[in-house]
């Protein structure tokens, strides 16, 4: 490589943040069976399902990767595995900031995993109830993440939580209201504030706008984009909607039946899809 890369902006530096190798999740119906997944992701011998099969990819610092697929593609399972909500059957993940990127994240104990979640990652679930506590105020939910990351100065915690809630345009008079009374879009914004609270290196979004009204979706995506750009956070966003992917992604990875069918630059996937399935999906986009 000739002298291309100058300093400054993080994106384009090609510094690897996350490396995922051969990630597999099998929901086994028969543990003694030597599964045969030659013909897809259902074992021909016992009917076990491979929700995720040998998925490998890398994510650079500051990059946005969108994983696109229909229901059952394994995209959400993949994300949940990365967030330690689900244990993989096989596979490794390496984070460059954790033990020099040489230790498989799945091999550490649950306490360390929790620390990784609290300090290095932010997650926005499709269903906000999975990510925020309804009986706690908006400010409390953001504080939750900070407290879990060992923040112990009340004033700082409060200020930071209010700062983040303002960033996601939660009205001031609702900062101390219990989130169970918030609208769907508002709950998602609280989730985003919470996910960002501790300046994570990695942001995971699982269908963050699905089920919301169109204008709310647009506003939310704009918000995510602006925050992502400002902070340069490496992001993985799972969605079934190419339109949503297009707004944020640098790269798109298409999944079907637990495997990665195609991956490439976002504009390339949208304009010149190679794989039959990708072409099918692109052709199915409305309007």
């Amino acid at each position: 490589m000739c002298a291309l890369i100058q300093d400054s902006a993080k994106k384009g530096e090609n510094i690897m943040l996350l490396e995922v190798k051969a990630l597999t999740k099998i929901y086994s119906k028969n543990d003694t069976c030597k599964h045969d997944f030659e013909k897809g992701n259902v074992c021909v011998k016992c009917g076990s399902v491979a929700a995720v099969k040998d998925v490998s990819f890398r994510l650079d610092e500051g990059e946005v990767l969108s994983i696109v697929g229909e229901s059952g593609s394994g995209k959400s399972t993949l994300l949940k595995i990365l967030y330690f909500d689900i244990e993989p059957t096989r596979g490794e993940t390496y984070l460059s900031s954790f033990e020099g990127g040489k230790r498989n994240l799945f091999s550490v104990d649950s306490k360390r995993k929790r620390e990784l979640r609290n300090f290095n990652m932010g997650m926005v679930y499709q269903n906000p109830e999975d990510g925020i506590k309804p009986g706690i105020s908006a400010s409390g939910n953001v504080a939750d993440k900070l407290l879990a990351a060992n923040w112990r100065d009340f004033g700082r915690i409060k200020n930071r939580s209010l700062e983040l809630l303002s960033k996601t345009e939660i009205p001031e008079q609702r900062f101390y209201d219990l989130t169970k009374n918030f609208s769907g879009g508002m709950k998602q914004r609280v989730q985003i504030s919470k996910a960002m609270a501790n300046n994570p290196e990695l942001l995971l979004l699982d269908e963050p706008t699905t089920g919301l009204d169109v204008s709310v979706q647009a506003r939310l995506l704009d918000m995510i984009r602006s925050i992502q750009q400002e902070l340069g956070i490496a992001t993985i966003m799972v969605t079934h909607d190419f339109g949503v992917a297009k707004t944020l992604a640098d790269r798109i990875m298409v999944m079907c039946g637990g495997v990665v069918v195609e991956s490439g630059l976002a504009d390339q996937i949208l304009e010149d899809p190679q794989h039959e399935y990708t072409q099918l999906l692109i052709n199915s986009i409305l309007g």
């Binding site: 291309l4 994106k11 384009g12 530096e13 990059e63 640098d250 790269r251 490439g264 630059l265």
Partner: peptide, 19 residues
């Protein structure tokens, strides 16, 4: 500039596009 773009990885292309 001595790089074969057809063989370059996605992230390298992203870097080139940006700069």
């Amino acid at each position: 500039h001595n790089i074969d773009l057809t063989k370059a990885k996605d992230n390298e292309i992203i870097a080139l596009r940006r700069k």
